[in-house]
Amino acid sequence: MRLGAAGYLVIFGILAILIILIMAVYPQYRVYSQRLAGEASLAEAQSSRQVAVLEARAKRESATELAAAEILRAEGAAKANAILQDSLGGPEGYLRYLQIQALESSKASLIYVPTESGLPITESARIRQAQ
């Protein structure tokens, strides 16, 4: 099967029409695909923004609840301290109670006891002799 001049002319004409069509359609396709990519990017940005807003709301609610819990804990501790203080004869008695509790839990071999003037009695001479 041999093509004549008319066959080559038809094939050339079809190829020319295809090339012209591609040249006319391709720029529009690029604009269309860029528009779709822009819309996808916009949708992703909106979704990311919504996620960030929801995370911020969750953090704010969490902080509010943690603050409320801390306030309740502090109020409970204040009431407990007031009850102890009143039962021990006021602030001085409560401070002595705390001092005794600290001495009981201490593992120190040397304890300084404050005097009436607020200065501790030191035993530096005895410590030097022990060394």
Rank of each mutant, 00 (worst) to 15 (best):
A78K: 08
A77S: 04
A80G: 06
M1G: 14
I83V: 10
K59I: 09
Y94F: 13
A45T: 13
S117Y: 03
G118Q: 04
Y29R: 10
V31L: 05
R57S: 14
L84E: 06
A6H: 09
Y97C: 02
S106C: 11
L88V: 03
R126A: 12
I100L: 08
R2L: 13
A6K: 13
L42Q: 11
Q85K: 14
Q101G: 06
R128V: 13
G4S: 12
L21N: 15
Y26S: 12
G118Y: 08
L95E: 12
E92W: 05
I11Q: 03
E116G: 14
V10R: 13
Q99L: 10
Q34H: 06
V53E: 15
G90F: 04
L110T: 15
A77D: 12
E123I: 04
V113Q: 10
A68G: 07
Q101H: 07
R30E: 14
E44C: 00
L42S: 12
P120G: 06
S106E: 05
S87M: 03
A68V: 04
L54Y: 09
E44K: 05
A130G: 00
Y32C: 03
R30T: 11
A37M: 07
R96A: 11
E55L: 12
Q85S: 14
R126T: 09
E44T: 03
L21Y: 10
S41W: 06
R96V: 14
L72K: 13
G13P: 00
V113N: 05
Q50R: 10
A82N: 01
V113Y: 08
S33L: 10
E75Q: 11
D86S: 12
R96P: 04
A24K: 10
L3I: 05
V31Q: 07
E61P: 00
P91L: 08
N81P: 00
L66N: 09
A68W: 06
R49D: 14
I17N: 02
L119K: 14
R35L: 10
L36E: 11
Y29I: 10
R126C: 02
Q85H: 03
A80P: 02
A82F: 02
V113T: 13
L110M: 11
Q85I: 01
G38H: 08
K107I: 08
M23T: 07
V31H: 04
A24E: 06
R35I: 08
A5T: 10
P91T: 07
I11T: 04
K59T: 08
P27V: 03
S106N: 09
L15T: 03
E116N: 13
T64W: 06
L18E: 06
E39M: 14
S109R: 15
L98M: 12
Q129T: 07
Y26R: 10
Q101V: 04
G90M: 08
A43G: 00
R126V: 12
R73S: 14
L42C: 00
P27R: 01
L110Y: 15
L54Q: 14
A125F: 05
A6M: 09
A45C: 05
E39H: 07
Y29K: 11
P114E: 15
I121G: 02
L88H: 01
Q131I: 15
